[in-house]
Amino acid sequence: MTAVDLLALARGPLFQIALVIFAAGVTLRIVEILVIGRRPDYAEARQGAVLSGVSTMFTRSIPREGMFRRNPFVIVSGYIFHIGLFVVIFLSAPHIEVWRAITGFAWPSLPTPLVDFLTVASIAAMLVVLVNRMRDPVLRFLSTFQDYLVWAATFLAFLTGYLAVHHMLLRYEAMLAVHIISVEVLLVLFPFTKLMHTFTLFMARYYTGATFGRKGVES
């Protein structure tokens, strides 16, 4: 099997399998959470829940002052790689073409050097958060195999993408195949792991904010 065959496999059947597992799995989990629902709260609401819920979805993205002071480097790293992920997935030209193929929609891309810079920054930031996870005794104690697995899957997607664009280590078509397969692994892992926080994070924040709002408490 040559690199070209591998690329054909990665762009063809493997992508279809990964996409079906991802799309069906993520939808299943979100819909399931919504259908189970919550016990109705019969207490009289002190103030509206919706506004508090929606605002909490965003305000919780800002770190607490105390937490930030304790470990600014790690918190900044966390931001960098999440922003990097967003930009790389949604605003780099080759990836927008994938979105166009799936959804039919496309939008303008960012210049390659900017995406490139964010990728390098994200790779560095991911290494920082990994070192922090392994050095901090509490974090290390709380970490499971899955935490390292999803870290590795995300990191490999970043790294192989960077190597492919810059024709490093392997020829472009081989590295592109490896990159696409690494993303497919990420997609398959997604519904079964903590990667689901991409979606559930906002549901959880809304719920917390809405509950606090009803009680008239600042969230």
Binding site: R11, G12, Q16, F22, A24, G25, T27, V98, A101, G104
Partner: peptide, 18 residues
């Protein structure tokens, strides 16, 4: 970079099934 086969309908079916 795009998938070589038609994936839009497949994704829609997967979401509906999910």
């Amino acid at each position: 970079s795009a998938p070589s086969d038609e994936v839009g309908p497949l994704a829609a079916i997967a979401v509906a099934g999910g």
